[in-house]
Design a protein around this nucleic acid. Structure first.
Lengths: 186, 186
DNA sequence: ATATCATTGTACCAATCGGTACAATCATTG
DNA sequence: CAATGATTGTACCGATTGGTACAATGATAT
């Protein structure tokens, strides 16, 4: 039996802090304050400091999307997997109350530090959606364009929802995007 | 004749720094280094410090969008104004190499500080597009939904372009959005 | 030429930054 | 029980943070 926390328990807490404050805005003191873990514990689990913490968070995010979003899109029934994506995305981002950490990292200098993980995230997301659309019968070009439109639309909807403090615009945006996809897959 | 710089000359420099580094990531030392102005000058022009600098930048951005984007959309020929928007947006954001400062501020804790300006920016942008679409003959609901889709699509395209370091995806996204608008206004 | 006010560089401030060192404590195992 | 290794709190580090004070310099108007 381990102590109260192990590494895997801390990562989700870190994710939420990075999400709210951004990489630069997240200080060790805020981490200590919100996790209840002192520097001793933090540097024990993450000897590489803040950067290792952020990398652990990015890895966990990648793993979640892989199993919940990408894999179904690549393997399962195309229409079903796309329908599930809208639901899962809405849940994961709490209807726009939660932002996309990867998208946020991409927008400022933080990108330099994590460019590989950031690029991967979107490449694989778009690729998985394209795969599903291809199986639904569309040409590579059409599938690629619609996949990009979908992922970009989600990211944009997150920005709008946060900017306006209104989750309805997020839900509405997802519905609009879903209609675009339905029109293309019938 | 004033000295080399006046307030209005500094604001665009500040805008570029905030864009690249984010609000938290922008330190006075970086500002000094990139503008060539010491603290004496900076606090002379912006007694309120970093926050006043950011507010000045946001005000300038708002003024630019008002004259270049919003006003034409509200007053000029609807189809023409929309076509001009795609071109101006592509130029302004340097095909995705430059990010939207307001969108970036919206994504982290910085939003708390500038929520009024951030909300205004998107409300007015969406409102202006809706106005043009309404004049092009569409119902309020349709116009609102398409306006939201357009603005969100632009923001999402900026995220993708930065994340992938690829400006072609930005240009491609704008073209896709433009087609959606054309389909709706004919 | 002098008075005035805008502009600037520099020294300085307390607070906080990310990170290190290490002794104390904890649970586990032999 | 003793030994071991994982976990933790605390003190401390130099560097940097945003901001202030102020004297020196610059330009301008009388």
């Amino acid at each position: 039996m381990k102590t109260v926390y192990e590494r895997a328990d801390i990562v989700p807490l870190l994710a939420e802090i990075f999400r709210e404050l951004g990489y630069e805005g997240t200080s060790l003191s805020r981490i200590t304050e919100r996790t209840g873990l002192g520097k001793g514990s933090l540097y024990h689990f993450f000897p590489g400091g803040k950067e290792e913490m952020a990398n652990a968070v990015l890895a966990e995010i990648d793993a979640w999307f892989e199993q919940a979003i990408y894999r179904p899109l690549r393997q399962d029934d195309a229409r079903q997997a796309i329908a599930a994506m809208w639901v899962n995305v809405n849940d994961y981002f709490r209807s726009g109350r939660r932002i996309c950490l990867v998208g946020a990292f991409a927008l400022d200098d933080t990108r330099e530090r994590f460019s590989a993980a950031i690029g991967d995230y979107f490449i694989r997301w778009i690729g998985a959606v394209r795969s599903a659309l291809s199986r639904a019968g569309y040409s590579d070009d059409e599938a690629q364009a619609l996949a990009e439109e979908g992922v970009a639309g989600i990211q944009g909807a997150l920005v709008l929802a946060r900017a306006l403090g209104d989750e309805r615009i997020f839900i509405r945006s997802l519905e609009t995007l879903a209609k675009r996809f339905e029109a293309a897959t019938r």
